Simulated scan of single mutants.
Amino acid sequence: MLICHMKTISLCMIVKNEEKILKRCLDSIAPLMDEIIIVDTGSTDNTKAIASLYTDKIYDFKWINDFSAARNFSFSKATMDYIYAPDADEVLDKENQEKFKLLKDALVDEVEIVQMYYVTPTSNNTVQNAQKELRPKLFKRLRTFSWIDPIHETIKTTPTIFDSDIEILHLPEGNHSKRDFSVFIDSFERGNTLSNKILRMYIKELYKCGTDEDFLKSKEIFLHFLDNTVCFKELSCALAHSYRILKDSTSFFKYALKDFATDACSEMCYEIGLFYKEIKDYNEAIIWFYNCAFEVGPIIDVEISGKKAFYELADCYQKLYKLSTPKNKEYQKMANLYKEKGDSFVLPETI
């Protein structure tokens, strides 16, 4: 007879100055945990005092601008079967607490990673490209290896992943983009190779909430990795954006036209639309914003082919209306149409 014991779980969290939200997070998940480990990376508020209400396993870790190093340290302190790795701005509501408990009761040894839905309400969505997406959140602490294949046998290296229906509410208090940008730049300056995943995330965050200054600080990174064929289109978009800021039209079109050597993307159409809008050629800008919205698709920011393109179309038509003599009511009609489209745009649940 097969006897299964309920799996035990270590919560491993890294924190810094989270006094406003840490209690909310731990109240929602602590009863489901068998061990709580908090790694503090330099708090100057009451974060550690709040953490001490839930656990005595609180560790200091000197922040070195490396989230992986801090998370690896937190995982090294775990002793249970599985590790749950939340951030302080996450919350499990009552329904999903029950789902988590059912998962814990039914978890079998074969499962090495459990994915959960990461749900960010529109009001809290700062750098996300979706309202709801699966993310790995629960990890088997000790992994065993098995031989597979009846001949030319090899070790199975891909983990067994279970996609649960648990939904984690992501409720950030503010925008952490400036902190994240500094980590990207510092890692590059220390000679670290940025993975394709990190390059894409870096560019996505810049497009979501980066300033002109943030793009220009990053230009050398874009140029350094431009030969990366996997991220070539994203890097070309970021470079075109940077040179548009610098009003260097020669360099702008050098990178903008590279996108059209293959399949065009919404982001590059948007950049060209902005280029023509900035020189007050609104009719040409409208062509590119229309292509951005309706003819091609986004690769970096889903809002660019939706809300952002619609607002730019509305603005261009409004400017043409103001310039028209006599007043062209068709321009005003189109401006109102695209303003309504922009106002009604919502992020997709998943991407």
Results as ranks from 00 to 15, higher is better:
2 L>Y: 07
4 C>S: 12
10 S>K: 04
12 C>F: 04
16 K>V: 15
17 N>A: 06
20 K>L: 11
21 I>F: 11
24 R>T: 13
26 L>P: 00
31 P>A: 08
35 E>H: 10
36 I>N: 01
39 V>S: 10
44 T>Q: 11
45 D>P: 07
53 L>D: 04
68 S>W: 07
78 A>C: 10
92 L>N: 02
93 D>A: 12
94 K>C: 01
105 D>W: 05
107 L>D: 03
111 V>M: 12
115 Q>L: 05
116 M>D: 01
116 M>Y: 06
117 Y>S: 03
118 Y>M: 08
122 T>D: 13
127 V>Q: 02
128 Q>V: 01
128 Q>C: 11
129 N>F: 04
130 A>K: 06
137 K>P: 00
137 K>D: 01
145 F>G: 00
150 P>A: 09
155 I>H: 05
155 I>T: 11
156 K>A: 15
156 K>M: 10
157 T>W: 14
159 P>W: 08
159 P>H: 12
160 T>F: 11
160 T>G: 05
162 F>P: 02
166 I>V: 07
166 I>R: 03
166 I>W: 01
167 E>K: 13
168 I>N: 00
168 I>C: 05
174 G>A: 11
181 F>M: 14
183 V>Q: 04
194 L>P: 04
196 N>E: 15
198 I>A: 09
202 Y>A: 09
204 K>T: 12
206 L>E: 05
208 K>A: 14
211 T>I: 06
212 D>E: 15
217 K>R: 13
226 L>S: 08
227 D>N: 13
231 C>T: 15
234 E>D: 11
236 S>Y: 01
238 A>H: 03
239 L>Q: 02
248 D>Q: 09
257 L>S: 10
265 C>F: 05
270 Y>P: 02
276 Y>D: 01
281 D>R: 08
284 E>N: 13
286 I>Q: 03
297 G>H: 15
303 E>C: 06
306 G>N: 11
307 K>A: 10
309 A>F: 09
310 F>W: 04
312 E>L: 07
314 A>V: 05
317 Y>W: 11
319 K>A: 13
323 L>A: 15
325 T>G: 03
329 K>M: 10
330 E>I: 14
334 M>L: 14
335 A>F: 02
335 A>N: 06
339 K>I: 02
342 G>V: 06
345 F>K: 07
